[in-house]
Design a protein around this nucleic acid. Structure first.
Length: 864
RNA sequence: GCGGGCGUGGCGGAACGGUAGACGCUACGGACUUAAAAUCCGUUGGGAGCAAUCCCGUGUGGGUUCGAUUCCCACCGCCCGCACCA
C-alpha cells in the first residue's frame, strides 16, 4: 500500500519526459485515420503565461487527450503571435531589441506551457515574427494583389496618437485604440486595404452554416457586417435663383416610403461637394474644421449637438412639383456609410427631428398607426417610430396614401427606377480592412514605390523582405522609415532608384492564417494543400470572446481570400467554436482608493484590514485579473506549489467553461486535496483477496454500476465541453470507490469491481490530470502509458438497471417514492401506487379522478 | 436607443416539462492525535414538530399543463455587444 503523499514536483517532469521520449503528441499526416484538429488561440509572447492561458489551454488539452484516447489522429499545435507593439515599447523604454525581447519571452513561456503538461505537438511550433513564416504572408499578399483583393486608396482612417499608427474599424473600441486606450483621431491617408467588403454578403450568409458556433458570436458578426436593404437615388439640385445645376445629389435610404415627409437634405462635411464648396466659402471651411476636431469618442458623440451649415443650394423633391428643400452640410452625416448624404425626414427619425427643430424646418408626419386621423397628429412631441411596420399606413403622401410601409417603399423605388435615377441597393456597415501599420515590429509589406512604374510588388524570388536588425527607437514614428539604407532599392521593373514600403502589416494578418500553416509548418509554400485538405477545418477552436469580431471575422475572410488564390480549399476555418469565460479574482482597496493585493487583506472583527499597514480596506468586486487592480495570481507560483494537475483540475471544476471563473484559494486547496485523495484510493484499491471475508454482492454490483455509468456520463460531458459536470461525475465515482473500500468484503468479485472502478477512474480523469493518471496507472501495475490507452467503454449491463425509483405525486406534489421493476406497465404502477399509505393519507378520502404514469419516472394521482 | 444573455442555498453551480439543490467549497459537530496538520464520519435552503411527518421555497406577477427552475406574456434587476449606419 502506498502511504506517501503524491508529489507532483517529482512526478510531473518525469511523465512529461516520458511523453516527449515517445513522441506521444506528434501528429503525422495520415489520411487513413480519422483526424481531429483542436486548437486554442495562440498567445502573444508577453513574457509570462497568465491564468487565462491556463484555463484556455487546459480546456483544449482535455479535448485533445480525450479525442486521442478515442482513436482520433489528433493535431494539437502551439505557436506565437509574435509581432506587435509591446516589443517595440520594450525597445523604447528599456533599450532591448524587439527581436531578442520576443524570443526570450517565447522561451520563457514555452517552458511554462511545457510545465503544464499539455499534449502539444511542439515539432510544429511556429512564430509569426520568423521570416520562414512571414515570407509566406508576403507571397500571399502579392497573390491577393494579383487577384484584385488589395486596394490602395486615400481615405479617412483611425489614427492612434499613442501607438502612432493606423487602426482598422474593428480595432477601435468606444472611440479608443483597442490596445493603447487613446482617443482615436481621424486622418486622411493613403492606405492599403484588403477588400473584405467584397465578401460581406457571403460572410454574413455563411454564418447560418456555422451551427457549432455560439449564437452570440454569430449575432455579433451579423451586426458588425450590418446589412441593410434600401434605395440609392439622386435629387436634382438648383441654385438660389432656381437654376438647375449640372450636378445631382445621390443619397442612400432605407426609408424611401417617407419621401413625402422630406424637409431637407444633408451632406457629410467630408462629402466631395462640401469640400469643393469650402474652397470658396470660409464659413464652410470653419464648419468643416469644427467637425473634424470633434472626437469620435462615445462622450463627444453623445454630447454633440446636431449642427448644420446651410449651403446655397436646394434639392428638388422628385414627386412634389415646385418643392425645393434646403441643403446642409451636417455633422451627424457620416462619409463612410452609404453615399455620405441623406434626405431628412423629421417626422420619423430622431436625428432628423432634432436637426429640424433646431433650424426651424417643417415636420411632416407621413406614417401613422392604422385608423389615426391625419389631422390629429401632434408633431411637436417627436418623431413617430413605428414598432410594428405592418400596423402603419401612409398619410400626407400623395399617391402613397393608404399604402402599407412596404408597399410604399416598393412604389417609390419602382417610380424612381423608371425615371432612371434610382437603384435598389444593399448597404453594409462593414468597411474594408486597412492593413498598414507605421511600425517596425511587423511583417514588411512586399511592395516598392517607383517614381516611374508606380506600386510594384517585390518579385517572389526576392522574398522574404526581412526586417533589418539595426534600427533605432530614439525618434518617434516608424523606425523602418528612419533606417538609413533599408528603404532604398532599385525598382524591380525599370531598375531606377525606388523606395520600399516602410509600413508593416497589421498583426491581425499574422493570426488570420496560422491555423492553416500548422498543417504543414515547414512547407516551402504557405500551406501544403494535401496536408490542409486532411487537417482543415479546425474541428474545435477555443479562445476568448473578445475576438468574436476581430480575429474570427478576419480569419473567415482570409480563408476565402486564400481559396481564391489557390492556397486553401475551404471557406470556413473553424467548424466548431468555443468561447471561454475570463478568470476573475477578488479585489481590495484602501480608503484612499489604492488597490491592495488580495493576499495582504485580512479579516478582523472590525472588518477587512491591510495585514502589513493595518489600514482599513473595502472589498471591491470580483474582477477580471489585471495588473492595475493588483488581483493577478501568477500561474507559475501555483504550478510550483500544487503542480499542473491541481491547477488544471481547479480551472475545469465547478464553473461552466463559458462563464467567468473566480479564482479562490479554498478552491485550489480543494483540488489539491482531491489529487491526494485519488492517490490514496488508488493505493488502497490494489489490496489482497481474502477468502474468509463474506461477499456483499449488492455492494459489488453497485460499484460496477457507478463505474460504468460514470464512463457514459463523463464521455458525454467531455464531448459537450461540460468539463465541470464531467468532474462532478468523477467525484461521484471516487466517493463510490471510497465507500466500497470501506466495505469489509474482500471477495474476488468485490476486488474485481474495485479494480475496475480504480482503473476507470484513472482513465476518466486523465484528460484533466494527466500526470497523476500516469502515476496511478503505474501503481495499478501497468507497463503502458495512459496516453497510449484507449478510452474505456461503458458496459450496458451495468449502465442499465432492472429497478427504478418512481416518484409518487398527488395533485402534482411529491408524496412518496417507490422502487419498482423497470418498464412496469402503467396499470401495474397505478395499482401499486394507489395502495401506498402516504397516498391514501394525502388523498384524505377524496376520489381519484385520474392517474398519470410516466414510464419509469413518475406517477401523478389527480383527485377531485 | 437597438440587439442578445442571465436571475436557483452562505458561495461556485446540478436538474430530456416529471423527486429542485447532484458535485464541490465554506461552516458546524464528532472520531483519531499529547497537540496541530492531514484523514475519516455526520449535519448544512427556510420554518413547525420529540418524532413519523407537514408547510414554504428557483427575481416579481400572471398564463399554459395532471405537473413549470424549464414553455408563453408583462415587469424588476444585473451583464455583454453595437451605437449619429440614414
Amino acid at each position: 500500500m502506498t502511504t506517501e503523499r503524491y508529489n507532483p514536483r517529482d512526478a510531473e517532469p518525469r511523465w512529461q519526459q516520458a511523453w516527449t521520449g515517445k513522441k506521444s503528441f506528434e501528429a503525422a499526416n495520415d489520411p487513413s485515420r480519422p483526424k481531429y484538429y483542436v486548437l486554442e488561440m495562440f498567445p502573444y509572447p508577453s513574457g509570462r503565461i497568465h491564468m487565462g492561458h491556463v484555463r484556455n489551454y487546459a480546456m483544449g488539452d482535455v479535448v485533445a487527450r480525450f479525442m486521442r484516447a478515442r482513436g482520433y489522429n489528433v493535431l494539437h499545435p502551439m505557436g506565437w503571435d509574435a509581432f506587435g507593439m509591446p516589443a517595440e515599447n520594450a525597445a523604447i523604454e528599456r533599450g532591448i531589441h524587439p527581436k531578442s525581447w520576443t524570443y526570450d519571452n517565447i522561451a520563457a513561456m514555452r517552458r511554462q506551457l511545457k510545465s503544464m503538461g499539455l499534449s502539444l505537438d511542439w515539432s510544429r511550433e511556429i512564430a509569426t515574427c520568423d521570416p520562414s513564416y512571414y515570407r509566406h504572408e508576403q507571397e500571399m499578399f502579392i497573390d491577393f494583389m494579383a487577384a484584385g483583393l488589395v486596394e490602395r486608396k486615400v481615405s479617412m482612417v483611425n489614427w492612434d496618437p499613442v501607438d502612432m499608427t493606423v487602426l482598422a474599424n474593428e480595432q477601435v473600441i468606444e472611440g479608443r485604440g483597442w490596445r493603447s486606450g487613446a482617443l482615436v483621431e481621424k486622418r486622411e491617408l493613403a492606405q492599403w486595404f484588403l477588400k473584405i467588403t467584397a465578401y460581406a454578403e457571403e460572410l454574413m450568409q455563411a454564418l447560418d452554416g456555422l451551427n457549432q458556433w455560439p449564437e452570440k458570436v454569430r449575432l455579433m458578426q451579423r451586426n458588425w457586417i450590418g446589412r441593410s436593404e434600401g434605395l440609392r437615388f439622386s435629387f436634382a439640385l438648383e441654385d438660389e435663383t432656381g437654376k438647375l445645376l449640372d450636378e445631382s445629389l445621390t443619397v442612400f435610404t432605407t426609408r424611401h416610403d417617407t419621401l413625402f415627409g422630406a424637409s431637407f437634405c444633408a451632406l457629410s462635411p467630408d462629402h466631395a461637394l462640401a469640400r469643393r464648396m469650402a474652397e470658396s466659402d470660409s464659413g464652410l471651411q470653419e464648419f468643416r474644421r469644427e467637425c473634424a476636431a470633434l472626437g469620435t469618442s462615445e462622450e463627444s458623440i453623445e454630447r454633440a449637438e446636431k449642427k448644420g451649415y446651410r449651403l446655397p443650394i436646394y434639392a428638388r423633391h422628385p414627386f412634389i412639383d415646385g418643392l425645393r428643400m434646403p441643403l446642409y452640410a451636417a455633422n451627424f452625416v457620416l462619409m463612410g456609410y452609404g453615399e455620405g448624404a441623406i434626405f431628412g425626414c423629421p417626422g420619423h427619425d430622431q436625428r432628423d427631428f432634432d436637426f429640424a427643430t433646431k433650424y426651424g424646418l417643417p415636420v411632416i408626419p407621413v406614417v401613422a398607426p392604422n385608423g389615426t386621423d391625419p389631422n390629429q397628429i401632434d408633431v411637436s412631441a417627436g418623431p413617430y417610430l413605428e414598432k410594428d411596420e405592418s400596423e402603419a399606413v401612409m398619410i400626407n403622401s400623395g399617391f402613397l396614401d393608404g399604402l402599407s410601409v412596404a408597399a410604399a417603399k416598393n412604389e417609390v423605388a419602382t417610380r424612381l427606377e423608371h425615371e432612371g435615377r434610382a437603384e435598389r441597393k444593399v448597404n453594409y456597415r462593414l468597411r474594408d480592412w486597412g492593413v498598414l501599420r507605421q511600425r517596425y515590429w511587423g511583417c514588411p509589406i512586399p511592395v516598392i514605390h517607383c517614381g516611374t512604374c508606380g506600386v510594384v510588388p517585390v518579385p517572389k524570388q526576392d522574398l522574404p523582405v526581412t526586417l533589418p536588425d539595426d534600427v533605432t527607437f530614439d525618434k518617434p514614428g516608424n523606425p523602418l522609415d528612419h533606417h538609413p539604407t533599408w528603404k532604398h532599392v532599385p525598382c524591380p521593373v525599370c531598375g531606377k532608384a525606388a523606395r520600399r514600403e516602410t509600413d508593416t502589416f497589421d498583426t491581425f494578418i499574422d493570426s488570420s492564417w496560422y491555423f492553416a500553416r500548422f498543417c504543414s509548418p515547414r512547407a516551402d509554400v504557405p500551406v501544403d494543400r494535401g496536408a490542409a485538405k486532411y487537417w482543415m477545418p479546425v474541428d474545435q477552436y477555443i479562445g476568448g470572446v473578445e475576438h468574436a469580431i476581430l480575429h474570427l471575422l478576419y480569419s473567415r475572410f482570409y480563408a476565402r481570400a486564400m481559396k481564391k488564390t489557390g492556397h486553401l480549399d475551404i471557406e470556413e476555418p473553424f467548424a466548431s467554436l468555443f468561447t471561454q469565460g475570463m478568470v476573475t479574482h477578488e479585489t481590495y482597496r484602501t480608503q484612499g482608493g489604492d488597490w491592495v493585493l488580495p493576499a495582504e487583506a485580512g479579516k478582523t472583527a472590525a472588518g477587512w484590514v491591510h495585514t502589513v499597514t493595518g489600514e482599513p480596506l473595502t472589498i471591491g468586486g470580483i474582477e477580471k485579473m489585471s495588473k492595475s487592480k493588483r488581483n493577478v495570481v501568477d500561474p507559475e507560483a501555483i504550478l510550483e506549489q500544487y503542480g499542473a494537475d491541481t491547477a488544471r483540475w481547479f480551472m475545469l471544476s465547478d464553473t461552466p467553461p463559458e462563464r467567468d471563473i473566480e479564482w479562490t484559494e479554498s478552491g485550489v486547496e480543494g483540488a489539491w486535496r482531491f489529487t491526494q485523495r485519488i492517490w490514496r484510493l488508488i493505493g488502497e484499491s490494489i489490496r489482497q483477496h481474502d477468502p474468509a471475508s463474506s461477499p456483499d454482492a449488492a455492494a459489488a454490483k453497485e460499484l460496477r454500476q457507478w463505474t460504468h455509468r460514470s464512463i457514459a456520463a463523463v464521455t458525454e460531458d467531455i464531448s459537450a465541453l461540460r468539463f465541470n459536470r464531467a468532474i462532478a461525475r468523477i467525484y461521484e465515482l471516487s466517493n463510490a470507490l471510497s465507500s466500497a473500500l470501506q466495505n469489509p468484503d474482500r471477495s474476488s468479485a468485490m476486488n474485481a469491481a474495485v479494480s475496475d472502478a480504480a482503473r476507470t477512474m484513472v482513465l476518466l480523469m486523465a484528460p484533466m490530470m494527466p500526470h497523476l493518471a500516469e502515476e496511478c496507472w503505474k501503481v495499478l501495475g501497468n507497463d503502458s502509458l495512459v496516453v497510449e490507452t484507449p478510452w474505456p467503454l461503458a458496459l450496458q449491463e451495468f449502465v442499465a438497471s432492472d429497478e427504478v425509483t418512481i416518484a409518487v405525486q398527488v395533485n402534482g406534489k411529491r408524496r412518496d417514492e417507490i422502487r419498482l421493476a423497470k418498464g412496469l406497465a402503467a396499470g401495474d404502477v397505478e395499482r401499486q401506487v394507489l395502495d401506498l399509505e402516504s397516498v391514501k393519507r394525502a388523498l384524505d378520502g377524496k376520489p381519484v379522478r385520474k392517474v398519470i404514469v410516466v414510464k419509469d419516472r413518475i406517477a401523478n394521482i389527480v383527485s377531485g
